[in-house]
Design a protein around this nucleic acid. Structure first.
Lengths: 137, 137
DNA sequence: CTTGACCCCGTACCCGAGTACAGGGTTCAT
DNA sequence: ATGAACCCTGTACTCGGGTACGGGGTCAAG
């Protein structure tokens, strides 16, 4: 597959592929005799993964390390385990945070019908209540 | 409270307060006779909320609308409900995504002990499997 | 054998979210 | 009454993550 084909299937700009390549997120693809990049179909999945991970709040460098984890070279097992474990804790915290916000919104929607003045808008209170909660991520 | 006091308590740079003010996320504070900003303690909670929401992947404009929701003026109830509801769906999707990644990492960690070659590294497969899953957010 | 649609590379530009800097005013402890 | 430590405004810079542009090569259909 050529660049623009991969880009179209992964719904990104062709330039973005070159960019990810430079950043080391995408392996350097094979080249045709004339120098054109030639990708296999994994490339599409890879790019989609990157995009999804990004949308979940991972920076490109983090995505890179996530990919290196998935790769999991035979030797780097301990490092991998540690990184994966801490990433999981991180995710756990972020999930909890999102759920708290969701719950706040749910309460808001529920009470939205009630007499104008007796509404419950607990988002602020729930989420940033005085506790010095650590920010996750 | 003066600017730098609020900033310290919310653990942000004082400049950031001015920036949020410009962006309309923070209400314009009262001013002393000499023009110094003078904040109440809600300001700290507000800024912390903004920071947390941001860490959860909301852009400042989204945070702004979240805050407007929480505010919930008596008249804008229907709009509020719609926005809150769609934001909830969005959150639901993102939570699911995070959980999928978390599960992938868990499997990876579990199988990490096993014979080097029989490891399960399903992150890629799980997350960006061929389904054209919509990206959330 | 040319023309339009692609590809290459390098460099430059854009946007969001801050952060810093310059030039000046205030406050307060000594 | 002076210096450190704050505050003000406006403008400029940084950084991450792209996106566009210029100048040139390639390839297949007509």
């Amino acid at each position: 597959m050529r660049t623009s084909e991969v880009a179209a299937q992964a719904r990104v700009n062709p330039q973005t592929l070159r960019y990810y390549e430079r950043r080391g997120l995408l392996p350097d693809p094979a080249r045709s005799s004339s120098g054109y990049r030639s990708y296999g179909s994994e490339a599409v999945r890879l790019v989609r993964f990157i995009k999804r991970a990004q949308d979940l709040g991972f920076a490109l460098d983090e995505v890179k390390s996530l990919l290196e984890l998935a790769e999991g070279g035979p030797d780097r097992c301990e490092a991998t385990r540690r990184l994966a474990t801490s990433k999981m804790a991180d995710l756990q915290g972020r999930i909890a945070d999102l759920e708290a916000i969701r719950a706040g919104l749910a309460r808001l929607v529920e009470t939205c019908d009630q007499p104008r003045e007796r509404r419950d808008c607990p988002i602020l209170a729930d989420i940033s209540d005085d506790s010095d909660k650590e920010v996750h991520r």
